[in-house]
Nucleic acid binder design. Structure first.
Lengths: 334, 334
DNA sequence: CCAATTTATGATAACGCTATCAGAAAGTAA
DNA sequence: TTACTTTCTGATAGCGTTATCATAAATTGG
């Protein structure tokens, strides 16, 4: 494969002149430039970004997105937003799935830091992930957190307004005269689960509804698998709920699936609402109420913040961007 | 940030010895090794993979996945399979979305070759993408194609058996006594659209049903947007269809959505089947028949083939792996 | 037309690492 | 002990670039 010396030889200039033509890093006389460009074309030469980044100490223009699981459509949209923004700024994006496993996450960080990626977009695995922060700051690699905010973290962050989103959903239930309202959350080591629970409690309190621990199920993960034990718990309650708030899309789907398996359905047995979009929801009948977060924008905005840190100069210390979810009322809430 | 010289100094050895400890590339005496490891730990040193790859000429252990759109759950699963396999082999995965745009695709290839990625997993944008093949072979970067196979391509490939999949679906319609069967395909520059059309035609022929051009709509893309014009076309036919085969999940969803918008539904007005999974299909009523492709395995197998090329030695020239879709019969086909 | 600028180009060193060879240290055999 | 292996370690060079400084060429002003 051709290198910069081959091009230089063919164009009868020094490698340095080739470099200047390719990077526009200094003016080069028209005629020389054309000769170099022809040589580049002739040899099908593509400069080695790795080599360049080593000596210029500028990084190879790579961003990493470390996140739970690309298969969940919510995260997929975040990834797409990040990728589009990265590309628009001539960065390449690496995507890694940690499956909410802090050790897997740690391995990725080591590997990516070793690659000298320019920066991280990061949906952390949970509060334990705070231990990775040191690693990133030690290696002076900037990062922006997305969606989840570990306890005590105060750096750049882009996420949703989970507390008010949950309040709005519960309020909706209450406005439909429901008072036995259940909550299915994810693991409480993850901020989104905590915040949505907080919102749920706050809404109850605002309406003087007594909080009942039997109507809350915090699962070991954010998947549909936790819906069945949650339902079991609710049905065992002395006064079972009539409305259920699921902390995310996957849980809601799991819940609906479990209901139907048991011969129950929405809205006759429970009314249902959840966070995040469910694909093709309009085809499911009755449709579920969703607090849809602007996932794509999570990705674009976070990438922009990160790129600012990379390009600039100095920006404000800590920036927190909270985006409001959009509530889509489903027929299952009637 | 510490480099290998810093570690060497602290451990009172030469950089070369540090390198040997880190890469296990040659035996190092126990005591020395321990000193080096302590120094590495003390300095929080992570070797620079970029620098290493330049001199060892081994690539930085990066694979690239160039594909249409990570937002479609089918491709998402492919990506996840690829990522899991890459990780298991200590490779990092870069994901790029070309949106079926051959120019965007070309830009990515240039950028990724410049990064000296070790190999490509590639779901091409269409037949025009064949022009990029030269670029890859010129730069001696191995690749494996997934899902789509441009006309005339004969290298490594992992995909689905689209012809027989389509035949099976049409056969299913016919077994339910349908004879006016329509097909909604994607652009015919994409092999999956072509092959599914081929299967559709073959099944008709096998059953002595005359092919009717008015019952075929080949859209400009693979999205749900093409469903509406397709339906218009079908309804204008002298004898409208009673069964519809959609070439992928997105088109089927678009079709169902369009139907309902117009006060029609499945299965009373049409029965419906499609390729690829639709998430939470079991919640949609009636459910649609799907030829579900093992997308995750597309990713894992393709990555394995690629890694074989990278690690080995010489493998067979051209390998084609065709995986059969699994047909899930939906109630809409009753 | 000559000096003083400005613009264009090249030579050299360095980035952080590893391949390679050479030499030192340790182990073995006689 | 000596000679011969074998094991370990280091010096050097070089991977493909770019930063930096130096010099050559072109341009400007008087």
């Amino acid at each position: 494969m051709a290198n910069i010396h081959d091009v230089a030889r063919l164009a009868a200039v020094s490698p340095m002149t080739v470099s200047r033509v390719l990077n526009r890093s200094a003016p080069v006389k028209e005629g020389t430039r054309v000769r170099v460009e022809q040589a580049v074309k002739r040899l099908n030469y593509l400069p080695n970004r790795l080599a360049g980044s080593i000596v210029s100490k500028r990084g190879a223009h790579i961003l990493a997105l470390v996140m739970p699981d690309i298969v969940n459509p919510f995260y997929t949209s975040v990834a797409r937003g990040a990728e589009d923004t990265a590309r628009a700024n001539n960065y390449t994006l690496i995507i890694c799935n940690h499956d909410d496993d802090s050790n897997k996450e740690a391995e990725y960080f080591r590997s990516l830091l070793s690659l000298r990626v320019d920066g991280f977009l990061w949906i952390p695995s949970g509060d334990k992930a705070r231990r990775h922060l040191r690693l990133l700051t030690d290696h002076r690699t900037p990062f922006v957190l997305i969606d989840r905010k570990p306890k005590g973290y105060s750096g750049d962050y882009v996420g949703g307004d989970n507390i008010n989103g949950a309040i709005a959903l519960v309020q909706l239930f209450i406005s439909k005269r429901h008072r036995r309202i259940a909550f299915i959350g994810g693991p409480s080591r993850i901020s989104t689960a905590r915040d949505r629970l907080t919102g749920y409690k706050a809404a109850l309190e605002q309406n003087s509804i007594r909080f009942d621990q039997n109507l809350v199920y915090m699962g070991e993960n954010f998947t549909g698998n936790i819906a069945e034990p949650a339902l079991d718990r609710f049905l065992r309650a002395s006064q079972p709920p009539t409305a259920v708030l699921a902390a995310n899309n996957a849980i809601a789907i799991g819940f609906l699936r479990t209901l139907r398996k048991r011969g129950m359905d929405v809205p006759q047995d429970f009314i249902l609402a959840c966070f995040d979009r469910i694909d093709a929801m309009d085809l499911i009948r009755p449709t579920i109420t969703m607090a849809i977060q602007p996932a794509y924008n999570f990705g674009t905005i976070a990438a922009q913040l990160l790129l600012e840190r990379l390009k600039n100069i100095i920006v404000e210390e800590h920036r927190t961007i909270l985006l409001r979810p959009e509530i889509t009322i489903g027929t299952s809430t009637d």
